[in-house]
Design a protein around this nucleic acid. Sequence first.
RNA 1: GGGCGAGUAGCUCAGCUGGUUAGAGCGCCUGCCUUACACGCAGGAUGUCGGGGGUUCGAAUCCCUCCUCGCCCACCA
Length: 918
Amino acid sequence: MTTPPMTEIPSQYDPAATEREWYERWLAADAFTAQNARSRRAGGDRDPFTIVMPPPNVTAVLHVGHGLNITVQDVIARWRRMRGDETLWLPGTDHAGIATQNIVEKQLARDGQTRFDLGRDAFVARTVEFVADTGGSILEQLRSIGASCDWTRTAYTLSPELSVAVREAFVQLYERGLIYRGHRVIHWCPRCLTSLSDEEAEHAEEMGSLYHVRYALAGERGKWLTVATTRPETMLGDVALAVNPADERYASLVGNAVVLPIVGIEIPIIADEYADPAFGTGVVKITPAHDPNDFEVGKRHDLPMPVTMTAEGNIDNVTDADGRVPAELRGVERFAARKRIVAMLKASGALVKVEPHKHAVRHCYRCGTVVEPRLSDQWFVRMNELAAPALEAVRTGRIRILPERWEAVYVNWLEGIRDWNISRQLWWGHRIPVFYCEARGCVTVSRDDVTECATCGGPVRQDEDVLDTWFSSWLWPFSTLGWPDTTAPDLKAFYPTDDLVTAPEILFFWVARMVMAGYAFMGEAPFHTIYLHGTVRDTDHMKMSKSLGNGIDPLDVVRLYGADALRYTVISGMGMGADLVLDPNNLERSFAPGRNFATKLWNIGRFVLTKVGDEPVLALEDIDDSRLTRSDRWIIGRLNTAIAECDGALGPPRPGNGAWSQGELHAGMRLNEYSETARRFVWNELADWYLEAVKGRVGVDGDDRDVARAVLVHAFDAALRLLHPVIPFITEALWQRLPRRRAKDSPLLCTAAWPAVERGRAGSDEFERIRECVDALRAMRAEHAVPPGRMVHAVIVTTAMPELYASEALLIGQLARATVAVGGRVDGPAVHALLPDGSDLVLSLGGLVDIEQERHKLSLELEQLTLQLGALRGRLANESFTARAPVNIVEAERTKEREWSVRADALRKKVHSFGEKT
RNA sequence: GGGCGAGUAGCUCAGCUGGUUAGAGCGCCUGCCUUACACGCAGGAUGUCGGGGGUUCGAAUCCCUCCUCGCCCACCA
């Protein structure tokens, strides 16, 4: 035997050093850089496979949610890369309009400044500087968890290139009549001082109050209508009371007027379907400037629309208010004003009662402030036309959504889609490419900045507002590939992309809009699979977040246990679409599965590498079947099964025929099943059984040693390939030490070929019989507390596999710590020949009948066996063996409880007797 | 108010289109430092598969109903 290169294989795996080293070597080899020329779409010979990363906010700090999202994508990307696809995983960041602006504003606030103190240009400059300083560091952090992104193509939503795309998209939609300026009530955040889209104004159930207020009928002393409202502070902007036209209680009053309390002016009573007779008193106050429904009512009835609240949320005479707001309420913050107004109503006797009332209140998704409906001018995208193909795509299977249940959510949203408010009153973002002519009010919408009006030549000023952040991200799958240059090589080679992996929270914000943009600008779906993974939660099932302080820093996990441990834990612990629960207070326990597995794999590697040595290893295909042992055939068979199961759990990678077929629609992407299958193969099959079985063979020079080495290397090599997408670092580090690799193979595991099922090497299940023997013997040892140092001498009688090799009897003995003689027939001469000298114990197991297939024969077999045992007993008693050491026979019995059991008393006696020997 | 999901071993979860003694990891118990691995090995215990009904030869798996959580959507003031 050669001296194993022990020095090269540290007994302790060092993730930190290994991971750093290999990530750098992957980068140095350009392993993650996609080549557009090799894409089949560009005349190359490889199928392209593209994932665009959901761009994290440029200011984001890595948290475990990113860790999950990135790991899922990386597993897929690495898998496809190994399958030979020209794989592009495109990374990038999002400028994150409101979020980033808020951060910089907070910095300013520490110096007692606001953005208005700086002015627009200085503020934007400062934000650019901030982003350049600290922004994008999240992408650096992604490398430490092994993300195999093509960093040469890193994109940024506010980069010059993507800004061109944004403008192009705006102008195209405008030219197609799908962008318009609308005057209506929108969601307004009084803290961020901007409008929000419907999606950005999130509902939250709150306990509020329903205030019942009397509005006196004009000219009729002592008569009034009672109105129920949750927001009494808006009453200063009331312009009417509405009742349902079918409501007989109030029919006679329609056309009359009431006196608006506090303000003292008269407002009409109108009839409108909007008023629900069943709610409250059936009378609703109409405040067109501060409620979207009331706005619609106001338009129908041509009512005035006084604005009585400032952008900051203070009560005041703002627009068309005609001095409605009395001096004492002017400038009062809206919730303070609510209290003051309620008090005033109470004092005047107009307040009838206050009821507790649960209702949903909208909040700003960035800062949590209660959103205020507010009348203003905004730019909108007309969505109906855009939504149609996005709906069709899912209905026809052009796009699939996993898990399936989200499909209904997606469809439901698109069917009820409303126009998208895309203008934001912010400074950080893509400025709206609309130019207004000062003099005549002409509107110029332009791809380029203009200084003079296109129609009248007069001086122009650009719209002050910027675009919703999502207006740049919805273009991401193609803007990052070179659009609007439709001849861009990347666009040609990699669009449409393949999988989109993200969390369900942004299904509407981003995913559905990307589908719409894909059809609107590229005429094609941007991807064929939407994979929505779960959320990381703590043990109380609270979503992990920095603000709650229950987060896990992935970098801590990497530092303590390595990126592989993090990745394996996350992938194996998460069923499709299911949340992942981890304990932030016990990282050791949370990540034990990954850490333990990585260590196990390292030790398997140490074993394989030291046993195999440095000499060349035969290729499996050069070994004739007849030279393989039962264990060889078994592990090859198990490997084939594992490969097939992994393929099944992961694939298909893309629809076979343009659209997903019924059979494919919900198949694949079971990453946890894939990782579990690979783990089972490596740990429970390769390590637990094959390694043990091969130990005796690799130590003895000769032909069989070469066979064993070849099979061992083959199986381990394939295992490393299978596992590489989940635990890339440790597999690469081990794979590089394997003695022989096929010449045609990549020098790096990360670009090496995915293993294929070996045809014509059908595994035999005979080794399963051997495992049964070992299991039975081990169970007996344990049950009867046989001391560890004591051998059990056993005869195994098997009818299932009468021609067991002597070497395999030896193997069974090794695995079960027994000396084993095997005979096909109890009374056959072979048994006698094989019985070891000086046996302490003859343990005869009942015939190893394949119960599954021969259940019907069982009773017969048992009958015969009994006879045979009797014969053996007799023979042993009076012939050659009597002269030897004590020989006892423990008869096996089949019971319902256990396949194999022995008469305990008989064995125990024996244990005593051999306890004195060795 | 509408829609959806979950409730399986002490904990976190797998269990696909119904079929032999319901699985994994972690934890727990017993015994082992067996020269790859104690982050390990061998053996073991633990489940009225949320409750109740139904279909079926047979259900954790299909149907109904109830209970408990969670999520999404929503212009009832």
